[in-house]
Simulated scan of single mutants.
Amino acid sequence: MAPSRNRRPGFSRRAQYGLFLGYVIAVAGAIVAVVLLVFATLNPPAFAPLRAAVAEVTTPISSGFAGLGRGIASIPTGIGNHFTVMQKNAALRKELEANRALLLRARTLSYDNHRLKTLLHLRERVADPVVAARLVSSSGSSTRRYAVLNAGSWQGVRIGQPVRGPEGLVGRILETGPNTARVLLITDPESIVPVRRTRDGLPALAAGRGDGMIDVRSVSVSNVAFEPGDVFVTSGTGGIYSPNVPVARIVRRSRDTALARSFAQPDTLDFALVQQGFMPIQQPTPPATTTAPAP
């Protein structure tokens, strides 16, 4: 059935007045908009104060509606963040409980270690420092890895003494002069350092490659798995390097032999510390000669 062509609102005067008022407001708004457009085009400086006044009136209203919209839009995000924070809190509580167990175990082991040392009357050896000096140069392009220290025999530096930096082991003294010394870096192919893995005490050897990296290989167990991030420190075996000095960290998963990066980088190292050997070899003293009494 076709719609009626009579669009009159009926015999209600209220409806007729409302429709008429709507038309009047629409026409008046269009006229005002045209007047303002013409005024802004013909005289922009005079229109600027009116525009600023309108902006002052409408800005709080628009800001309120914008804040209300942001608040409504942030409700789903807030709910999601709430559940995410709850999950993270649960994970952190679980990690805290695990770390508390590890801490208690470490305290127990430390107490037992101290008690056994006291029982056996063991004495810890400490590598005394000799001198702190500056590394003035290092070989970066050659296959051999050396560094020059601006301290020598006049400062107490001797061949074989270990050299370390703030981050870890640097190498050992190879040659000495009056005021300079040559350091064999741990990345040199001739350098071999006895080390152990921190997480399980696995003994290994750290050998230089000549390219700035280190090969770590196991010495006691075959088919050993090395994981990225495994940290190796000196073991004290051999009597040159004191134990627990950081040496290298594994960078690639491997078995038996793994690639590692040294903690101390001589290219960026300013100062280094020369220490006494952990267990220096004592030179035998010649027997005292006795003279026969005169007859």
Rank of each mutant, 00 (worst) to 15 (best):
L19Y: 03
P203C: 03
D211A: 09
A181E: 00
P287H: 06
I250K: 07
F226M: 04
V130W: 10
A288T: 14
A28D: 11
M1Q: 02
P166Q: 03
S141E: 09
V251C: 00
F232L: 13
G212E: 03
V130I: 15
A181N: 02
S139N: 12
D267I: 01
P166F: 02
A73R: 07
F20P: 00
A106T: 13
T257D: 01
D267M: 12
L109T: 08
G236M: 11
L202T: 01
T180M: 01
K117C: 08
A204P: 01
V245L: 07
P9H: 10
R8A: 10
N179C: 04
N179H: 11
A207K: 13
S191G: 12
G152A: 09
R197N: 12
S4M: 04
F11Q: 13
G160M: 09
V126W: 02
R115Y: 07
E175T: 11
G80I: 01
V148K: 10
G236N: 10
E175W: 02
D128M: 13
I79Q: 02
P189D: 07
I250Q: 00
F11S: 14
L92G: 03
S137C: 09
L202N: 04
P284V: 04
G152F: 03
M1E: 05
S110F: 04
T180F: 06
S254I: 04
L96H: 05
A91L: 08
P295C: 03
V131P: 03
P9R: 05
V136L: 12
E97A: 14
L92M: 03
L273E: 06
D230M: 07
V195N: 00
E190H: 13
G78C: 07
V195I: 09
L185K: 03
